[in-house]
Every structure is written in structure tokens, then in C-alpha cells.
Simulated assay, not measured.
Amino acid sequence: MRIGLRTIKTAVGAAIAILLAYYLHLQYWPTAGIITVLSVQNTTKASFRLVFFRIISTAIAFLIAVVSFRLLGYNAIAFGIFLLLFIPVADLFSLQDGIVLSAVLVTVFLIERSTSLYWLMNQTLLMVVGAGVAIIANLFMPNLEDRISTYQDSVEQSMQQILQLMSQQLQTPAAGDEREALIQESWENMSDLKIALNDGMAWTARHNENQLLSENDYYKAYFEMRNNQYELLRQMQTSIERIDNPLIQGREIAILLQATAENISASNAAEDLVSDVEALQEKFESSDLPKNRAEFEVRAQLYYLLSNFHQFLRLKNTFYTIVASQN
């Protein structure tokens, strides 16, 4: 059995909330613990948002409850009317998360047959104590940067392997099992890459939700850049599969792909590689026209491959220039 950090925070926080409510001489003091249990979230910002909306929800609930009970008496019908009015209002202002908790707090008015200032203050303080302890508990969050770094490593490893496989494909005859094996392995790595990207982006979003006073978009920008590169890699792989007989330009691209694989890390600006690809594009444009249809089709795919490859490197260069250099 594994006891996670959220479970520990919830248990300790609930106990502290109950003790605080008890020593503050609040009536129905165990309620503060329940409020804490319902308010501890997976991220710091989520906890703040939830507590904020629940405070608004409680204020609206108390206002409707006071009117309902004082007009209709402290009975089940009045409580039903209260819910009939409160739930649609909460839905209207997107306060659904506070409906149950607010209704529970209002039941004390029914039990005590009073909506006096004393009971309004008592229930409000229960909310403040329970929610306040939950917020404090959610300030203690694990550092997710190490976990995110593992996904960065996984992404870069998969990209390195894909680029190396692409380089090999461009230097392997189209006919034969070797080329097919390289293509299959490339797509398998592409699948692993997408999984690592999705997981990395999910953990990055969670990490950002725990940052209250500081904003650091590095990881978000990193995985967005890599995700865009992933889409380009898919197009590049498709182009390579359509090239039956690579020309001399194909071997030149293969060399650049291998060089990129060796410099895939985010700390590399890839400026030299961008220049090399641009030089190769100019060489393509100034070379002799294709001699036949087959060569034309190969040249077209190679040029499309090179264009996507250029964009692949430009994304990395832009990321390094704008984002990485600021961190």
C-alpha cells in the first residue's frame, strides 16, 4: 500500500483544521476538517481557485438561506426551496464545486433553527479555517523538474534515433528487407517520442500549476517546440519512404541528418546546421534540371524533405535564441 503526499497533506490538514476550530470554540468544529478534505487539490493554483469559488458560493448560499428560512420557517420545505433557488444560481456562475459544501453548511441553520449573526459567523469561520488549512497544505508541493527532465531526455533520445534512422534510410537501397526494417524502427521510435511528449507536456502543465509567485515557461516552450518538430519528423519520414533511389543530394541530406542527431540537445543553437541546410537548398536550386520523370519525382521529395528539415532546425534555433538563452 502506497501513501502519497496528497493523502498525507489531507490527513494532517484535516486534523489541524479540526483542532483549530475546536480551540476557536466554533460549533460543529469537525466540519472544518471535512472542508479541508474537500479542498486539497493536486496543484497549488487549483486549490486557490477552488477555495475562491467556494467562498463566493457559500456567501450566495447564506444569502438565499437567510431569506428562505426567515420567510418559510426552519423546515424541510424551506430547505428544499433554498436548494431550488441556490443550485441554478450556482450553475449560472459556474460554482458547481461549491454546491454540496455550501448546502452542508446551511443545514446547521436548519438544525439550530436560526440564521443569526452568531451562526452566520460560526459557519463562515469554519469555511475560513478549513479552506485556509487546505491552501497552506497545498503550498507544499514536490519539485517536478527532475521528473520533467527525464521526459526531456527521453524525447531527445527518441529524436536522435529517428534522425539516425532517417540518415541510414537515405543511404540504403529502397528494395530489400533492410530498408523496411529501418522504416519500421523509425515509426516505432516516433510512437515512443509522441508518448514522451504527451507525458512531458502533462507534467509541465502540473508543474506550472504549482508556481504561484514565479512564472517559468521554459518547459512549456520546450515541449511545444519538440511537438512541432515531431510533426515535421513525421512528414520527413513520409518523404523518405517515397524516395526509391536517392541521388547525390540524398546522401548530402543524410550527412546533415546524422550531424543533427549528434547535436539534438536543447542547449545547442543549431546555427551551423541551419546554415548548412540553407546552403544545400541553394545548391538544389542551382543544380541542373531533372533528366527524366523518375529523377524529377525524387528531386521533388528530396526538396520537400529538405524544406521540412530546415523548418525543424529553425524551430530549435528560435527556441534557443528566445527561450533557452533567458534561463
Rank of each mutant, 00 (worst) to 15 (best):
E185A: 13
M127W: 04
G200K: 02
Q41D: 09
I81F: 13
T204H: 05
T44V: 06
Q184E: 14
I3N: 06
D153E: 13
V108Y: 12
S94L: 10
L92W: 13
V37N: 04
V108Q: 06
S267Y: 05
V323S: 05
L139N: 14
E178S: 10
L273P: 04
G250C: 01
L5W: 12
A181E: 13
D276G: 05
L233H: 09
G130F: 11
E145M: 05
T172Y: 07
I111F: 13
H207M: 10
L305Y: 11
V66Y: 12
S307G: 06
G4P: 09
V51K: 04
T58A: 13
A78K: 07
Q237F: 07
T36P: 08
E282M: 11
N208P: 04
Q281V: 11
L197K: 02
Q237N: 14
T238C: 01
V129I: 15
I253G: 00
K283G: 08
I16V: 15
G98S: 02
Q235E: 12
M166C: 11
E297R: 07
T260H: 01
A205C: 01
I243P: 01
S307M: 07
N216D: 15
L110F: 08
S57F: 09
F223K: 03
A90Y: 06
M121P: 02
E156P: 04
T7E: 15
I8S: 01
V104A: 01
I34R: 02
E262V: 08
Y320I: 06
A21R: 03
L105T: 03
E185D: 12
Y303N: 12
P246R: 07
L165G: 05
A175D: 14
Q168A: 09
I322H: 10
Y303V: 09
S94G: 01
F223Q: 04
E285R: 10
F79A: 02
W187D: 03
V274Q: 05
N210L: 03
Q157I: 03
R234Y: 13
H207W: 15
T172A: 04
M201P: 00
I240C: 01
M225D: 10
S39T: 14
T31P: 01
I255T: 14
N327E: 15
F223P: 03
N189L: 03
L144M: 14
L126K: 01
V106T: 06
N122T: 11
L170R: 00
E188A: 00
A221Q: 15
K316V: 06
G33A: 06
I60N: 01
V66C: 02
F140A: 13
I243E: 02
F69G: 06
I162L: 07
L38A: 11
L105G: 08
V40K: 00
L84F: 14
D217E: 14
E295L: 09
Q157L: 12
S265E: 10
L144W: 07
Q41S: 08
D177S: 14
A221G: 02
A270D: 09
R70G: 05
S287V: 07
V12W: 02
